[in-house]
Design a protein around this nucleic acid. Structure first.
Lengths: 336, 336
DNA sequence: GGTAACAATTGGAGCGCTCTAACGCAATGG
DNA sequence: CCATTGCGTTAGAGCGCTCCAATTGTTACC
């Protein structure tokens, strides 16, 4: 008692398999009588079309493959929402695979998606290098949602990190800070451009940039901040790679007996709901996540339907959400 | 210039298509010479097997379909990690679809998965009713990861809500609280059993349970708490349906000028990283999420490979993580 | 009444793969 | 020297669907 196929439905409705196919793809050239007969038979049998067979016959899947770099990070959730909404609107399905912040896993995820014949790849954050990206993009159009260096042939949707970092730095400088440390994102693809933006904004303000390697998870804050504390090199302000890291920073600072923002100001990046919680009240750079997801879909559609060939690199402008984790530095210039 | 197929590879390697198939499924009965020839040809052409064709021919997909009720909720992320790890170990792939906390979308997600011929459905949280669940489970074995009423024919992996609620209530009672309100999960599938567990634990302690309808997102706290404040019915302790809701509760209490835990103690559920952040420091019931994901896979494998037919209902024991959001009530018994 | 035009329906090839049965060929043994 | 075994290989049918070309049925027009 396996699942009913088109032939089962056809037989029950007393028509040919081709006619059932026409009904399933609601073609206009089917008589009402036969249409209802087919639909009834299908419903009675609980018939569901086999997508594998359809894809094979049709030579297309109308499906996008999404790979999320880190399913734990709320930043990605909203990008995915944007992608899903836009894809849905254009009759595309969306398959999600988890990169797990691990290049090996992500590589396998790409391969799985390609084997599934997805029509485009949307990488929401990525850990892959240029070669791998280029290779993937030769098989299916690929777009990266996240900032990072431009890749040949690969489309990108970014929110400008230079502007974002400048927003954070200028805000802190305006409050009177001069000793600002950036905790970078480690292996994250956006780590470099964001750190570069920070350095540039600092120099523009006549200040010396200090960057400490960290990572893109809340756990990555520990080592970096503890080191600063032990070296007695705690600055008056910390600009963290993202909200998760910033949340970790708040934790560690608190454990070390430092108060935010009295002793240290903290700025996050992404403005996820973590930053928005009153209890966190984290000043953070905001990226238009949903919009970025929507644009990713649009970009891929241009490749697929209008066969655009030159790469697109859309760069959106971030904004700053000011909250309670930033304030003027202590007058004596120390952190204690 | 479309993608190479098995025939392309076969021709280039000077063998038959069947031989290529054998190599791809690394059959032992292929000579080393031909094997390397095929692998070389495949690599040179960038050949990737077409999963649709394979699924069709093989009449199986080795794939699980996951539906996440709310991709924003960090609780689910870890369950998914557990599922992925266990599935991977058994050579199964995992397809993730987002239910978006909306029954309609979830229904379509189920249908999509079934059309993809997934061999089992894993619903991580669900908004579907008994009928729909039963219907799905007739097409493919289905397991629900989340507490809720038992469903006929549907397997469930739960962490016992009665115990969980009792842990929370007993903790609060031990601190001296007598006026405890539960904010329930609204439409969430686990809403009822958790509320029931609360009521039971309260009565066992000789107290009258008060339950206020809320929801399972941080935004759902607003209306419920504001109402309590306006009615001057703020209890000395609030037991929230989950961490997200608890986070919202902390927000609203703070805006209302109430201090946690001095004026009101708050307990969450799930013990996600939100609860663990020092800044939130939320006392919360902990469910063994990863384990639950692993067990879900195991349960489905028993159905598929060992064709078990009687439903499994695994119920794990939650624990309580005590943190800073709970403390003894004020002596005067008021909240201010 | 014959033919053209159109609408509704169907047969059948083919999408890329797997899998069974059969085949060729060397090695083995009587 | 021929039958037997077994290994490595292949031909070909079939998985469930789509889509083109062909067929039938109906109406319109001269």
């Amino acid at each position: 008692m396996s699942r009913p196929t088109m032939d089962t439905v056809a037989e029950r409705a007393g028509v040919s398999r081709a006619l059932v196919s026409l009904v399933m793809n609601d073609s206009p050239k089917v008589s009402d009588a036969k249409r209802t007969a087919v639909l009834q038979a299908a419903a009675a049998l609980g018939y569901l079309p086999n997508l594998h067979a359809r894809s094979l016959a049709q030579q297309r899947t109308k499906t996008f493959g999404i790979i999320i770099n880190d399913i734990h990070n709320p930043f990605f959730a909203e990008v995915v929402s944007g992608i899903e909404a836009a894809a849905d609107e254009h009759g595309f399905s969306v398959l999600i695979l988890n990169g797990g912040r691990d290049p090996g896993r992500e590589r396998r995820a790409v391969e799985t998606h390609l084997q599934f014949q997805v029509e485009a790849l949307i990488l929401v954050g990525t850990r892959l290098d240029d070669d791998e990206l280029e290779q993937a993009s030769r098989v299916a159009p690929t777009v990266i949602v996240a900032s990072g260096p431009d890749h040949p042939g690969v489309d990108t949707i970014t929110a400008n990190d230079t502007i974002g970092a400048a927003l954070a730095v200028d805000h802190l400088v305006a409050l009177g800070h001069t000793d600002i440390v950036h905790l970078d994102g480690g292996d994250n693809i956006s780590s470099r451009p964001r750190a570069a933006g920070f350095a540039r904004a600092m120099r523009a303000a006549g200040l010396e940039p200090r960057v400490v390697r960290a990572g893109d998870g809340e756990a990555d804050a520990e080592a970096a901040v503890v080191q600063l504390v032990e070296e007695e090199a705690v600055p008056t302000a910390i600009f963290a790679f993202n909200d998760l890291l910033a949340a970790g920073v708040l934790d560690v600072l608190e454990s070390a007996g430092l108060r935010v923002p009295d002793d240290v100001s903290v700025v996050g990046y992404d403005n996820t709901f973590i930053a928005q919680l009153n209890h966190m009240s984290l000043t953070a750079v905001d990226q238009p996540r949903r919009k970025m997801g929507e644009l990713a879909v649009q970009t891929m559609l241009e490749r697929i339907e209008d066969n655009r060939t030159k790469p697109t690199n859309l760069d959106l402008a971030p904004t700053l959400a000011v909250r309670g984790s930033t304030g003027p530095p202590r007058h004596d210039g120390t952190t204690r």
